[in-house]
């Protein structure tokens, strides 16, 4: 009997020696990767690049930690699981931050587009108020090509937005606003000069 017990312990010892018990937390790894992919899908790499880089770096570290545990005789994935939970949450936060940044840029574009549209309407009204006859025609003609250019730019902004290039659209609308503002000043100046002559 005594011998049988010793034999059983020996077999168990050898079995333990040649097998490892813990398995990598594949479900959690897959979930974290999916969460990172979701963050990327909403443009986190473009709109919150620093956060997204931190996220991918963390995931790379976890992948290395998994392999490190696999290399061991008695792997333990407890800490890896904890880290995976943190990374999954980071991915959710990064996604939210990216979406929020996109909304911020969208709002800025909308706000600037409204401002440019208002300026353009004002510019068009100012053009009608600009001096009539040959003395005003030259100034108006010079301004017309500028106005057409701004309108083309605003149309391009809409296309860029539709294509998801919010940063490009933001740059373009900012430049359009600068130009529309300078024309507005120019037109007011021309009208003011014309008024001065009538005095």
């Amino acid at each position: 009997m005594k011998n049988k017990i010793i034999l059983a312990i020996a077999v168990l010892g050898i079995a333990v020696l040649f097998t490892s018990c813990a398995k990598p937390p594949q479900a959690e790894i897959d979930a974290a990767n999916a969460a990172i992919q979701e963050a990327k899908t909403v443009g986190a790499d473009l709109y919150v690049p620093a956060d997204f880089a931190a996220l991918t770096d963390s995931m790379n570290a976890i992948n290395a930690a998994v392999e490190e545990q696999k290399s061991k005789m008695f792997p333990s994935y407890g800490k890896v699981k904890e880290k995976l939970a943190v990374v999954s949450q980071m991915a959710v936060d990064t996604k939210a931050k990216s979406e929020s940044r996109k909304v911020e840029i969208q709002n800025e574009i909308t706000q600037l587009t409204t401002e440019v549209t208002t300026l353009m309407e004002e510019n068009k009204t100012l053009v009608t108020k600009a001096p009539k006859g040959k003395e005003g025609a030259a100034a108006i003609e010079a301004i017309k090509s500028d106005l057409a250019l701004i309108e083309a730019s605003v149309a391009e902004v809409a296309t860029l937005q539709a294509n998801g290039d919010l940063i490009g659209a933001d740059d373009k609308i900012k430049a359009a606003k600068e130009k529309a503002t300078s024309i507005n000043t120019e037109l007011k100046d021309v009208i003011e000069k014309a008024k001065g002559k009538k005095k």
Binding site: P131, E135, A137, A138, A139, D189, V190, K193, A194, K197
Partner: peptide, 8 residues
């Protein structure tokens, strides 16, 4: 004094 060349 209009700031542009406008005459004929």
């Amino acid at each position: 004094g209009k700031g542009v060349d406008w005459t004929d």
